[in-house]
Amino acid sequence: MATRVTRRGVLAGSVAGATGLAVGSAATAAPGYRPTGTATRASAGSAGAVGRPRLRWLGNNGWEIRFDTPNGRRTVLIDPWLTRFHTGTYTEQGADPNTPLSVRPDVIDRYHLAADHILVTHGHYDHLTDVPYLAGKTGATVLGTETHVNLMTALGAPADQLSVVRGGEYLECDGYTIQVLRSLHSMTGERSRVAFAGTRPGHPPATPKVIADLVEGETLAYLITVGEVSIIDFGGSNYLGAELAGLRPTVALVPVGGGAIHRYVPRLLATLGNPRYVLPTHWDDFDYPLDEPARDYGGLAPLRTAVRQASPASRFVVVDHLETFTP
């Protein structure tokens, strides 16, 4: 029998582990807390700055990156999950692995998303569930591992829009590039395990019904470059340092947590050359709707402290649900 999965262990020792220093617990930041940077709440249809990417946070690790090219507007989505059905993930009891999967087209359509590419970092329910519907609606090309593609196929995604990647691919697109990087998922609990681990190689499995059916399926990171601006996103609070060597992103989208990972934040930021901007991601309690202010489940302030200590020159910018940021 599968056991409940809780994310509370993600934060255990997160500051001490992230900074390599003995740091006391910090107060939880209030929703919408913005230490530095500029962020504004905007509707889906408002225009962005020409020639520069505009990032909008869709909650969890969901991001919309929009920018204009000579051939028109382009949009890249990362891990878009807007249905946000109740799981209890951030409660003491944790998520019930038998929680039914749910896709709400009425909720998804409310945000009028377009997409040229959809990038999947890993196969868990809070990253992949809505992607098949969005792929069919937008016509986007979807990147993911063999497991991710098999899971999405089983969920009804258009097969001709799914592209298997493994890490190492460097794609030339219309006015932008996408570099696919091998990465690692967060590890939690006393034994430092990956929640809902496993792969689904070969043929697509039976139609996933519950959240435990959506396994990690290996984890990817992505570097999106638009002109002089590059943005790196990690789907979990872990990474492969060797994959990041020589990369110098303008913006790093960094998940909170990483308590089980040795010096998570300082190693990451040093490897990336101390990015100009660090935006926290995957920090909200997703049992609450996207059209409400984000509720910090406890990792925002520790991450801010870790970034400040490891890379004082980096600007730590917090955007709330559906707010945008232009680097």
Rank of each mutant, 00 (worst) to 15 (best):
M1E: 13
T3F: 10
A12Q: 14
V15K: 02
G17Y: 01
G24R: 13
T38Y: 10
T38I: 09
T38V: 12
S43M: 01
G48D: 08
A49E: 04
R52K: 11
P53I: 02
N60G: 07
N60Q: 14
N61D: 15
R66P: 00
T75E: 14
R84W: 11
Y90M: 00
A114I: 05
I118V: 14
L128G: 05
L134Y: 11
L143Y: 15
L151M: 01
M152D: 09
D160Y: 06
L162F: 12
G167V: 08
Y176E: 03
V180C: 13
V180R: 08
L181N: 12
H185Q: 15
G189P: 00
A195T: 15
A206F: 07
T207K: 14
L214S: 06
Y222E: 08
V226H: 07
G227K: 04
G227T: 03
D233K: 01
G235E: 01
L240W: 06
L240G: 05
L253T: 07
A260P: 00
H262S: 13
R263D: 15
A270H: 07
W283K: 09
D285E: 01
L290A: 11
D291T: 05
P293V: 03
D296K: 01
G298F: 08
G298Y: 01
L300W: 01
Q309N: 12
V319R: 05
H321T: 07
L322G: 04
E323I: 00
